[in-house]
Deep mutational scan, measured.
Amino acid sequence: MAEAPPRRLGLGPPPGDAPRAELVALTAVQSEQGEAGGGGSPRRLGLLGSPLPPGAPLPGPGSGSGSACGQRSSAAHKRYRRLQNWVYNVLERPRGWAFVYHVFIFLLVFSCLVLSVLSTIQEHQELANECLLILEFVMIVVFGLEYIVRVWSAGCCCRYRGWQGRFRFARKPFCVIDFIVFVASVAVIAAGTQGNIFATSALRSMRFLQILRMVRMDRRGGTWKLLGSVVYAHSKELITAWYIGFLVLIFASFLVYLAEKDANSDFSSYADSLWWGTITLTTIGYGDKTPHTWLGRVLAAGFALLGISFFALPAGILGSGFALKVQEQHRQKHFEKRRMPAANLIQAAWRLYSTDMSRAYLTATWYYYDSILPSFRELALLFEHVQRARNGGLRPLEVRRAPVPDGAPSRYPPVATCHRPGSTSFCPGESSRMGIKDRIRMGSSQRRTGPSKQHLAPPTMPTSPSSEQVGEATSPTKVQKSWSFNDRTRFRASLRLKPRTSAEDAPSEEVA
């Protein structure tokens, strides 16, 4: 009796068929016929556990003709996506030579605008209408194809895939403007070719909807975003200037109206006075309405000098805001240009540092100066060695804690006790272990408590650290204090090793 083939788990290929790579489910599931010992083939499952149809090819690079078809379809799909992405970037994010197409579109729109203006002049109306009709045909074809291509290429973005995504893309403001202008152009052409009475009025009214094509030149909205950011950044200043200017306008108009309503027919109503105030304070000055009385002229002159300053403030605020924003954008561009080279330089330096163990090129690091100058660790070890030599091999803490019996001779020589300023008595072995921070803190506390006492003391002649007598400086308080830590004499004296002298005989010792 033939044995059933062993159940295979995992992703390994079956024996005897090495080139074939078959994806098997996580659990080997066989058909009921196979479990019962029949000759049925096992049921194939996909990666998600769903059964595959009987005629479906197995996924994998070596699955025969199905694999070749899959490779061809995958390559075609990649080319399709690449083309779609390229078209989308050309239309929505132009760079380099892609601006040539947008310059061509701008020339078409500008020519249409010029011809629309010439069509309103009686001398050039006939020729402009003929040229404009031909140009409209060209623009309908160009913009119609462009609109379709834009909607198709938007599928390269995830949020615009599918018919719902394309509809979302078509609802964008600039796409809506394109659609309105396209419909208006078709209506103008249809009305112009019919030759009816309505054609002339339709051409004159709907052609100027094509002015909206100038708005579509900035599809990404960079200028509007820049203007919005400047207004938002200086909103408080703008609101303040406009508010005060509006108050000056209504008060000036009302007072001039009261002064001129009886003697001047131009100011017969408050609305006429508001019109005069707006034209005057905005420095336009049509001259259609002028005050005639001396009181009205004085009020107009005073409020004009006051109001023009507030009406001119928004222009200066926006101008300075634009300058600052442009400078910030230039700085951001320079930062973006330098970020990648800086990151590459840091990575290269780290690779060199991690692979080169000698690091002989590091001549400006802490390790280099640590090898030249005595390190703080060596100074600490030197302090501890000196203290243990004086205390008979014991550390200062051990000397303080060691009990001394009554009447027993002390094995240590008597030492002079010292007192730290602002604290109780402490171990004499710690007097010379006072660090730089303690010395600086002690000097600052003395300056806070009594700076007036220092200038009363007789001035001391500054001497070099080499000429100081070591026996005289029994305490860190003898170090000359200065008002600034930048004094080199104080810094050098604080680094010197001060020996400890006994109370009975204080021989001067120098520590090399």
Rank of each mutant, 00 (worst) to 15 (best):
A2V: 10
E32A: 12
A233S: 13
E35G: 13
G38R: 09
F104L: 11
A25P: 01
L58P: 10
L247M: 01
M139R: 07
I239F: 02
Q71P: 09
R220C: 00
S229L: 13
G144C: 06
S253T: 00
R82S: 06
G40R: 09
V100G: 08
M1I: 12
F99I: 13
A259T: 05
G195C: 15
G70C: 06
A187S: 01
Q194H: 05
P6A: 10
A170S: 13
A28V: 04
S63P: 13
E146D: 10
N344D: 13
V109F: 06
P341R: 15
M139L: 06
A271V: 00
F104I: 11
F167Y: 01
K78N: 13
N89K: 10
P6R: 08
F182I: 09
F106Y: 00
S153A: 12
Q122R: 01
D17V: 07
A128V: 06
M214L: 12
P13L: 01
I134M: 08
I134F: 09
Y147H: 13
A2G: 05
G34S: 13
L83V: 05
F179S: 14
V231L: 04
Y270F: 02
V149L: 05
F110V: 07
F169Y: 02
A18D: 06
N89H: 14
V151I: 02
S31G: 05
C175Y: 00
P42A: 05
E3K: 09
V215M: 01
A4S: 12
I244M: 02
V183G: 09
L135F: 15
T278S: 05
I197L: 00
L48M: 12
A184V: 00
I148S: 02
P42Q: 08
A56T: 02
M340I: 13
S185P: 01
I189F: 14
F104C: 02
S265T: 03
V103A: 08
A21G: 07
C69Y: 07
F303C: 04
A18P: 03
W86C: 03
A263G: 05
P19T: 14
S73T: 02
Q329P: 13
D178G: 00
A36P: 05
A128P: 06
S31R: 08
I197M: 10
A21S: 05
F310V: 00
L306M: 12
L113P: 02
Q347E: 02
A343T: 08
A25T: 01
L212Q: 00
P51L: 10
P341T: 14
R161G: 10
E130A: 06
Q210H: 04
L11Q: 03
I317F: 03
E35A: 03
S63C: 05
L203Q: 13
G37S: 10
I211L: 05
G144S: 01
S268P: 05
N196D: 09
P42T: 10
S67Y: 07
I121L: 01
R44H: 07
E35Q: 08
Y232C: 02
R79G: 11
V142F: 05
R161Q: 04
H292N: 11
G46R: 05
A301T: 03
L115Q: 04
P53R: 02
L299V: 01
G49D: 01
P61Q: 07
L258M: 10
K261T: 15
L45V: 13
F174C: 13
Q327R: 15
